[in-house]
Amino acid sequence: MENVGKRGKECDMADYNLSRLNFLIVDDNKHMRALVKSILHALGVKSILEAGDGADAFKELRHFPADLIICDWSMSPLDGLDFVRMVRTGTDSPNPFVPIIMLTGHTEMHRVMEARDSGVHEFLAKPISAKGIYSRIRAIIESPRPFIRAGLYFGPDRRRKENPNYNGPERRKTNKGEVEGSVNSISDKLKEPSADAKAADDGGGGDGGETPELSQDEINALLNG
């Protein structure tokens, strides 16, 4: 960063030119699509395609070379999680590695874990802001993650932080020596797909309890170990 100074930390937000990236916005609410599109335009994005649900978006991906997808969770008939799983693990998926930001009002911990376990890169809590959207895009640019195939999971590495004190065995097979013996770990709560996530009601209705919702900062802290 060249101009860090008077405005301090805020300047950390300033830097990337997004004009060459292709964005796909997936939301069944046209007003939210319009909002996200307007924000992206103002951030200098030129190429944006919209889709009204997961099935539509999957079709669009066949001919639109999306570099990044911003996807709502609550959609019908195919919701955001179904869509992410199709993109990641569908045999006919045109782009299984595409980074996905999940946009949602569901911010209870088990929901965040559920989204992470479906293979999203980032999670953005509503209400959305320009700063919030850009910070998630920036995180994806700056921290490209390897993909992991483990059991039923295929998606970006869910273990983001290296733990230099980790003494346990490396349980992954490396692919073409990419990892070169380095070991990663993360706090226990993020090590395995959460039991909560598996047990969660995926009906779009409720979780049946008073699970507290998390703030964006809490979500980031949780996802970053």
């Binding site: 990236l21 200098g44 980074p99």
Partner: peptide
């Protein structure tokens, strides 16, 4: 588990700074 490096990443398509940068 298997580790796979994605074929592309966004860094190859974004420039830092200059006109048009956020």
């Amino acid at each position: 588990s298997e580790i796979i490096t994605p074929p592309t990443n966004l860094q190859s398509k974004v420039q830092k700074g200059g006109p048009g940068a956020v």
